[in-house]
Design a protein around this nucleic acid. Structure first.
Length: 439
DNA sequence: GCATGATCATGC
DNA sequence: GCATGATCATGC
């Protein structure tokens, strides 16, 4: 046992005490006669009980009440280069649909609980029990940074507006940028749904969370002590990105190529248009890191003079032997579709010259996500029967399955015991066209 | 012209 | 070597 004697009214004092965890796992501080700690227990609660000797329980107040400080533990994964990245989003506090509608930002229970937090970072390793997870980086006293505050507030208001509209069941992580409304609870057919005040439709339980990309950003700032790559204070994220593109809208590929000093080196350079967009985003000392921070999917779309996309939009591949055991909620397709997208649209004019036509944020409407869900479930059950007969574009308004492989010999095993070309989910060309037309 | 199959280019 | 975003190619 270590002598902790911290001042429960002082965040700095609590931080100092917490630093004693660095390089160790909680087990080191626990009496050896405490056995049978559930493997899946909540590490945060255990740290409160066995390290700080507090027991705040489920309260709207922050864990260290007198210091107005909330304790959070969050998992990191070690990258190949030895540095760390966030394993997942950081879940902050449950969204209470009944009361949130009545709140204002300044009086919000979110601000009350989460404006000041002590973040403890542990390395996540599969099969290592929670009390053996090592805190690999010094803890961080996180106070909602001034430069992120406007965006987080806007995110909070977006979520609130949806609840006030009786659309709690349509909430999606893609609605927002840094602060997300993530699903909370079991998922699957037995999930317990919640009531919402302005609609009779039951909604999934959700919690406020910092998106994974934003946690990475916090982590990077903490580790390197470097400054933010900077969304200018007054601007929200969306405005900042759009203003970056504004000077380039309408320009031809040739002009963009010249001005951005990026020339197509071969006719077969598939990432060329995306590269131009990334260069524009990097203007003025900022960068694509901003997108990553907000968990945004950058997609370049090229359309003909009539506004028809040249291609459908592909998503990460799946394995036949995996998808049959997966749940939709956990699938990478579902998670991608919940993100916010930044579409950079290039359009050909009547003379056949391609221009940067438009930049827009988009996230997938609820009903379309449900249709993608249906296609996914259909795929799952068809893989079990015949992995070579999967949903085609003609079978859905929204999505289909198609090969994504090195060549026809690039195959994966199927449940039928043979092999088939690697596949991935796509959003239909027609659907993309429809989406673009509505922007 | 569209739907579907096949493949390329790039970064890690 | 592989995952991922993107594009090409062909048959109807």
């Amino acid at each position: 046992m270590v002598d902790l004697d911290y001042d429960p009214k002082s965040p700095e004092s609590i931080l100092l005490a917490a630093k004693k965890l660095t390089g160790k796992a909680l087990r080191y501080f626990m009496p050896s006669d405490v056995t049978n700690v559930a493997n899946k227990g909540d590490l945060g609660t255990l740290v409160e009980n066995y390290f700080f000797f507090i027991n705040p329980g489920n309260s709207p107040e922050p864990d260290f009440k007198e210091a107005n400080l909330e304790l959070k533990t969050t998992g990191l994964l070690k990258k190949a280069d030895g540095t760390y990245r966030a394993k997942e989003r950081l879940v902050l506090t449950m969204i209470n649909y009944e009361t949130l509608a009545e709140e204002t930002w300044l009086s919000s229970s979110f601000l009350k609980k989460c404006s000041s937090m002590l973040l403890l970072f542990y390395e996540y390793i599969k099969d290592v029990s929670v009390i053996d997870r090592k805190f690999v980086i010094d803890p961080l006293l996180y106070n909602l940074p001034e430069e992120d505050r406007a965006q987080i507030r806007r995110d909070w208001e977006t979520i609130q507006a949806k609840i006030r509209d009786g659309k709690a069941h349509e909430l999606s992580e893609g609605d927002t940028f840094y602060l997300g409304a993530c699903r909370k609870g079991s998922g699957g057919p037995n999930e317990k749904l919640r009531k919402q005040p302005f609609s009779d439709i039951p909604a999934k339980a959700r919690a406020f969370s910092f998106k994974q990309g934003y946690v990475d950003f916090i982590l990077a700032g903490h580790v390197s002590k470097l400054d933010s790559l900077g969304v200018a204070d007054a601007l929200t994220f969306e405005d900042a990105t759009k203003s970056k593109f504004a000077p380039f809208i309408g320009k031809s590929i040739e002009e963009l190529s010249r001005e951005l000093n990026s020339h197509k080196e071969s006719s077969m350079q598939k990432g060329f248009h995306r590269g131009l967009a990334e260069r524009i985003l990097s203007q003025n000392a900022s960068s694509v890191a901003e997108l990553v921070k907000a968990g945004i999917e950058l997609k370049t779309i090229r359309v003909n003079s009539k506004g028809r996309p040249n291609e459908a939009m592909s998503f990460p591949g799946f394995k036949f032997m995996d998808i049959i055991h997966e749940e939709w909620e956990e699938s990478s397709f579902a998670n991608k579709l919940e993100q916010k997208f930044l579409f950079v649209i290039y359009q050909e004019d009547n003379a056949g010259i391609e221009h940067l036509a438009k930049v827009a944020y988009w996230n997938m409407p609820y009903l379309d996500r449900e249709e993608a869900h249906r296609v996914w479930e259909d795929t799952k059950s068809r893989v079990k029967v015949d992995a070579k007969n999967l949903p085609k574009a003609s079978e859905s308004r929204v999505a289909h399955v198609r090969p994504k492989a090195k060549n026809a010999a690039d195959v994966l095993p199927t449940p039928q015991g043979d092999f088939h070309t690697k596949q991935c989910f796509w959003l239909n060309q027609n659907y993309i066209q429809e989406v673009i037309a509505s922007l």
